[in-house]
């Protein structure tokens, strides 16, 4: 096991740790504070130096864990398998080793059929320097994840990191039993720059941060039903969300996907004509939709629960 050190020079007491920012934390800090104290055991930790075999070709530095931490721990005394991406290393992108760790973890969860999985997303998508390996890793992860869900394993995604949850990461998130997202957590397939490059700055100005947050950010995802729980940007809030969602995660079956089909079809019908998130929020019945981005966590979480009941049976 690898001990984790705070990267700030402050001393942490328990209270300040639980209220400290998920967004600002490293992947290792998130894992440490999410799980019960000292319960985490890492698989193929950094001491194994299983670094990317491909980054040297591009003369790029490697990281000993390739930006993915996987292991076993306890949450509220119960066993969980955990995977966490480090969004600051190569944008948390999926490469060969990075992805294969999560694939192996999910295959084990499937065959054990009893231990829930938590995925702490923080990713820009596929790592381009090993794009084919990364793309395939995402496909393999999705298959293993769905196989695990089909035997009743809850797979819960937590989204609130610096890199967001983009590209193939967004597709994996869409396969999870349930998601918790914070305001800072963006979930999307195409990133802001990609849309701007393809459609022009008139359609999407990637430098317009407010536009990015309201189109892809956690508040919008919670409001359209893309995530079940809106979390505060704290370790404690994500821990509570993880425990709640593990308990409430439905298994997956044909009827789940039929429900999802109608849920998604209704979304297009209801909001397909909207040109901006604010229009969608207005259609949902928000009294002052333009003020939603400014709402604090508690106000927003309460409003979201009024406007859109989480659907646990349609994902």
């Amino acid at each position: 096991m690898i001990a984790v050190v705070s990267e700030t020079s402050k001393d942490h007491d328990d209270a300040s740790v639980s209220t400290s920012s998920w967004y600002e934390a490293s992947a290792r800090q998130r894992v440490e504070h999410l799980l019960d104290a000292n319960s985490f055991n890492e698989f193929i930790g950094p001491e194994w130096r299983e670094t990317s075999p491909h980054l040297p070709l591009f003369d790029l530095p490697e990281q000993f864990d390739d930006g993915m931490i996987v292991g076993y721990g306890r949450l509220g005394g119960k066993p969980v398998l955990v995977a966490a991406q480090e969004g600051r290393f190569m944008g948390g992108a999926f490469g060969e080793i990075h992805g294969a760790k999560l694939t192996g973890l999910l295959r084990a969860a499937r065959d054990m059929a009893s231990v829930p999985v938590l995925i702490l997303f923080d990713t820009g998508g596929v790592r381009l320097q090993e794009a084919n390996a990364g793309e395939l890793a995402i496909a393999e992860i999705m298959r293993a994840l769905i196989e695990a869900r089909l035997v009743g394993v809850p797979v819960v995604g937590l989204v609130g990191g610096r890199a967001g949850c983009y590209g193939g990461g967004g597709l994996i998130a869409g396969c999870c039993s349930a998601l918790a997202v914070s305001e800072q957590g963006r979930i999307s397939v195409s990133g802001p720059e990609v849309i701007e490059t393809n459609r022009g700055v008139e359609e999407f100005d990637s430098k317009d941060r407010a536009l990015v947050w309201r189109t892809m950010g956690g508040k919008h995802r919670r409001l359209i039903g893309g995530a079940e729980v809106f979390a505060d940007d704290t370790m404690a809030s994500f821990r509570d969300a993880a425990r709640y969602l593990i308990e409430h995660a439905p298994s997956m079956s044909l009827s789940t996907l039929e429900s999802e089909q109608s849920r998604l079809a209704q979304r297009i019908e209801r909001f397909g004509h909207c040109s901006d998130a604010v229009d969608i929020w207005r259609s949902l019945g928000a009294a002052e939709p333009e003020n939603l981005p400014a709402l604090h966590y508690r106000e927003f979480a309460a409003l979201a629960n009024d406007l859109q009941e989480p659907r646990h049976d349609a994902r």
Partner: peptide, 20 residues
């Protein structure tokens, strides 16, 4: 008596240190 620790992250202007 700890066997090993890791600190930091590999990013621009940053580094990771594995001590064993």
């Amino acid at each position: 008596s700890k066997r090993q620790v890791i600190v930091g992250v590999v990013a621009s202007g940053n580094l990771e240190v594995l001590a064993e």
